[in-house]
Design a protein around this nucleic acid. Sequence first.
DNA 1: CCCTGATTCGC
DNA 2: GCGAATCAGG
Length: 162
Amino acid sequence: MLTNLPTWTTDRVELLKSHFEAGLTCREIAASIGVSRNAVIGKLARLQLTRGPARAEPRPTKVARERSRKSIPRLQYQILQAVYENAHPLENAQPLQEEPIMSERRCSLIELSNERCRWPIGSPGAEDFCFCGNTPVEGMPYCSGHTRLAYRPGTRQRVSRA
DNA sequence: CCCTGATTCGC
DNA sequence: GCGAATCAGG
């Protein structure tokens, strides 16, 4: 195999520029030159050629995006689901069991406030559905126990489709 | 859903 | 430097 095919030769770059100035779309330019659309776009970017003004808000870096996805609050039923899945084997001492969280001041939706833990208890829509109502951690929507539950990182959600 | 250009980042 | 992946917007 030829290891060094010069992708962007001088004449290809000239074709790129002329087609770009002619107003062809990147896809059309790519087809005409025989490269991928991304290759054209990437080369144009490196040549500092753009049609419109660059996007106002630079999007967060990949690392930042992955980080922000790590500690998302999980719904109660998702946690219960995980518990059931991990509870199959006979010996399962305590997979992710900690001290039970007592909710002594359960309240309804309309009674929620910044002073009441917003952790849902029961099934939404059910007759006895309510919220924990404990005093939240400062600046958090949940009490200390439910904050630990909701924001414990590391447990990946299963979203994969079969 | 399709398309577009723009950006990031592993290679 | 290159371009696939991924984004935002139409």
